[in-house]
């Protein structure tokens, strides 16, 4: 294995993994912090950050062509339709 290969095959995933574990520590700690405000929001924001790390680096959206990114985005946009419109009912009952 060359040096470059080692950096690419092992180094980069390891760095991402370290970031994920750090985020896990943050979210776990904050959840148990007595009296911390906006707990659900923070937990979800950290989950989103972790998801972004996984999608960008592990799932390699960073190197992907625009077409592939568009496919990834499509599901999210359509899920937004589902949420926004359904809650236009629940929030106004």
């Amino acid at each position: 294995m060359t040096r470059e290969q080692r950096a690419q095959v092992i180094g980069q995933p390891l760095r991402v993994f370290a970031g994920l574990l750090a985020l896990l520590l943050v979210t776990f700690g904050y959840a148990y912090l007595p009296g911390g405000p906006l707990k659900t929001e923070v937990a979800l924001a950290v989950a989103a950050a972790k998801a972004l790390l996984i999608a960008t680096f592990f799932m390699q959206l960073r190197q992907a062509v625009w077409l592939v990114r568009l496919a990834a985005l499509g599901g999210l946009v359509w899920a937004c339709f589902l949420y926004i419109i359904t809650f236009s009912d629940y929030l106004t009952r």
Partner: peptide, 23 residues
């Protein structure tokens, strides 16, 4: 590109599948 695109389309369906569950 085809495999990535096809797979991501499938993952988009998973997003909506779990999106419905999370709803």
């Amino acid at each position: 590109v085809a495999v990535q695109f096809g797979m991501w389309l499938f993952l988009a369906t998973e997003t909506l599948f779990f999106g419905g569950l999370f709803l």
